[in-house]
């Protein structure tokens, strides 16, 4: 069970401040979408529209072609998981989970129990006493076990240590294989999570920079390594993202696709061509827009 998301010319203003500007995008059903952007780019604001936490000032936010705001059927399909303040949460985990269990039609209790064990979460302690990482893991459990057709994790890993994050990523992939849904993972840990994404959405300053599948995006750049003068000659006229030099060897990252012929030409000259990480592309793209 997965659902498709559509945004049409969405603008959101807070007073004079434009948090989102004219965003139009489609997120396909059944895929893992990575939403990346720098701090304050508008990631959370965008996601809060999908979860019907607020209405856009202009434009439409739709799930499977229907407006989501105050739509009982659609709102039930969206699970929005973000960092919550649990300072006043005196309940214990089992009591906390009763709520999603009773209100989420696809909630899987056995799966939730399994996840609680995997994350090693204590069931007998009040939630406010748990560490930040454990509270985040609890949020993740709620998000995964609810099996909402649209599941949004907004930097849900905050405070989780590396092994716990690893479990989080593994479980997303494992559950996606068995019960496909539309995931949106917003993150700034790009290099750690990029392998999860089927599709990548980059926003900056409230504007949409890119919405492409992973392959297309990763083909938008290349690294070229070899003798300095040869590399310089080869990349002249291309957009450089980064260059590094070690003795006579130079490694350059370029933005733009390299045709097969160009790649072959490079190899014949003894130049090595490698991929550019999403992280590097992201850094470049958001710097450029500044």
């Amino acid at each position: 069970m997965a659902a498709k998301i559509n945004l049409n010319d969405v603008t959101l203003r807070f007073g004079k401040f434009e948090a989102l500007k004219d965003i139009s995008l489609t997120l396909e059903a059944g895929k893992i979408h990575g939403l990346i952007g720098r701090n304050g780019a508008g990631k959370t604001t965008l996601l809060s529209l999908l979860a019907a936490f607020r209405e856009p000032t202009q434009g439409h936010v739709e799930i499977d072609g229907e407006a989501v705001f105050e739509n009982p059927e659609k709102m039930q399909q969206v699970g929005f998981i973000y960092e919550k303040n649990y300072a006043d949460e005196y309940q214990k985990i089992p009591a906390m989970l009763e709520f999603p269990e009773s209100y989420r039609p696809n909630y899987d209790k056995a799966y939730a129990d399994y996840l609680l064990k995997r994350f090693n979460l204590p069931l007998d302690k009040p939630i406010y006493k748990l560490s930040k990482g454990m509270q985040s893991a609890l949020n993740v459990v709620i998000g995964l076990a609810s099996r909402t057709p649209i599941t949004i994790f907004d930097e849900a890993y905050i405070g989780m240590d590396a092994p716990a994050r690893e479990i989080f990523y593994q479980e997303i992939l494992a559950d996606q294989a068995k019960h496909p849904r539309t995931f949106i993972l917003s993150t700034h840990l790009v290099s750690e999570m990029d392998y999860l994404f089927d599709n990548v959405v980059i926003i900056d300053h409230g504007r949409l920079l890119m919405n492409e599948d992973y392959e297309t995006i990763s083909a938008q750049g290349a690294s070229i390594t070899g003798a300095a003068d040869q590399v310089d000659a080869f990349v002249s006229g291309m957009k450089l993202l980064n260059e590094q030099k070690l003795g006579g060897t130079k490694s350059v990252m370029v933005y733009g696709t390299l045709s097969e012929q160009r790649q072959l030409a490079a190899r014949q000259q003894g130049l090595e061509i490698g991929p550019v990480s999403l992280q590097d592309l992201f850094i470049h793209l958001t710097e450029e827009a500044r």
Binding site: F53, P72, Q76, Q77, V78, G79, F80, Y103, R104
Partner: peptide, 12 residues
């Protein structure tokens, strides 16, 4: 906040 977070409309 709690109810809307869990997908219940303001009307309900």
């Amino acid at each position: 906040g709690y109810y809307v977070q869990h997908g219940i409309t303001r009307k309900d």
